[in-house]
Write a protein that binds this DNA or RNA. Structure first.
Lengths: 81, 81
DNA sequence: CAGTAGGGATAGGGTTCA
DNA sequence: TTGAACCCTATCCCTACT
C-alpha cells in the first residue's frame, strides 16, 4: 500500500514551537531548535529541512499580508453557489 | 484578440502517452515522463502540472467504475550518492 | 560528513468554463 | 449540476555551498 508521505500538514502546536524556537535561537538554527528539549516533543515528526521550508512559507505569506495596503480582502465568505 | 488558452482538451495521443509514461515511471513522476524522448513529442504542449491534473481526472472518473486488480509497481528508490 | 539556502517538483484544494 | 482543464500554494525533494 502507498502511504501518504506528503500532505503532512503543520499543526498549530508545531508552528508555535517553531516560532518559539526561532525566537530563542534565531532563524536558520533549525538543528538547534530541533534538539532543544523545549521544542523537540512538538516537532518530533519534523526534520531541520521541514523547519526551514515551513519558516520560508510563513515569512512569504506574512510578507504578502503586511505589504498589502488594502485590507478589504475578506475571505470569510460563505457564498458557495 | 481572444486567445483562449483554456480548455485545451486532451487528445487521445496525449492521453496514451501519459498512460504509457506512468507505466514506465509510475504515477507521480510527471517531470520524468515529460522529458523522456519517448513521450516528450506527444506531450510538448503540456507541463508536469497538466500531467498530474489529467491523471487525477482520469483516476477520479475511473474510480467509480473500478473493478480491475492493480498492478504491482515497485519503486524502492534509495539513490544516495 | 553535517547543516543550511534556494530552486524545483508534487499533492491536493479551489476556480472557471462548457 | 457535473466534469475537464487550469490555478494556487503548502509540503517535500534535490543539490550547491559552507
Amino acid at each position: 500500500m502507498e502511504e501518504h508521505r506528503k500532505n503532512n500538514k503543520w499543526t498549530k502546536e508545531e508552528e508555535e514551537a517553531l516560532v518559539a524556537g526561532i525566537a530563542k535561537y534565531g532563524a536558520g538554527k533549525w538543528k538547534k531548535i530541533l534538539v532543544d528539549p523545549e521544542f523537540a516533543p512538538q516537532l518530533s515528526g519534523r526534520d531541520n529541512i521541514n523547519l526551514k521550508d515551513k519558516w520560508r512559507n510563513l515569512t512569504k505569506t506574512q510578507a504578502l499580508n503586511e505589504s498589502s495596503p488594502n485590507n478589504s480582502s475578506d475571505m470569510s465568505n460563505e457564498s458557495r453557489f
